[in-house]
């Protein structure tokens, strides 16, 4: 399966994995701290923070792990992230009250990875899932042509 994969595409995948890993650490660290320190301030937003952190961790593993099942897991988790950043990002800007947020400030103490489309993370949470899905599509084509 991997024999026909061009090295550069695999290499780009490596960078993707690295960025996902960093984001997973960032989201996990932040949400763990928010939940321990001030969960009562915005329970829904911080719970979403934790969910996103777990999804980032699973996505990182799924990108590394070989095989069809992990491929599906990768598509599912990365798709979920894209939906999350779009939906939660929009809500955080339009109606922060729904999430129990007092402001839409992506750098504030209540900010999550997805607030304002991930502006607090240089929009990486918005761009990354798109790159991830493109990468996975490319890998699927490679898998097909190899089969």
């Amino acid at each position: 399966m991997t024999e026909n994969t061009s090295p550069s595409r695999l290499g780009v995948g490596r960078v993707l994995v690295a960025v996902y890993g960093i984001l997973a650490i960032a989201a996990t660290g932040r949400s763990v701290f928010q939940i321990i320190d001030r969960f009562h301030e915005a329970p829904l937003a911080f719970s979403l923070s934790a969910v996103s952190a777990v999804v980032y961790i699973v996505a990182t593993i799924a990108l590394v792990a070989p095989g069809r099942t992990w491929y599906r897991v990768a598509v599912a988790t990365i798709g979920f992230e894209l939906a999350g950043v779009l939906v939660i990002g929009t809500i955080s800007l339009v109606a922060p009250g729904i999430l129990g947020l007092h402001s839409a400030n992506p750098f504030g103490r209540e900010a999550t990875v997805w607030s304002a489309y991930g502006a607090g993370y240089l929009l990486v949470p918005l761009v990354l899932p798109v790159l991830g899905l493109l990468y996975l599509r490319g890998r699927r084509n490679v898998m097909r042509s190899a089969a």
């Binding site: 090295p7 290499g11 780009v12 490596r14 960078v15 690295a18």
Partner: peptide, 14 residues
Amino acid sequence: TRWSTVVLGVACLA
């Protein structure tokens, strides 16, 4: 590989 160099760069920017 050269992609490891890119990963180093990403880590520094992070």
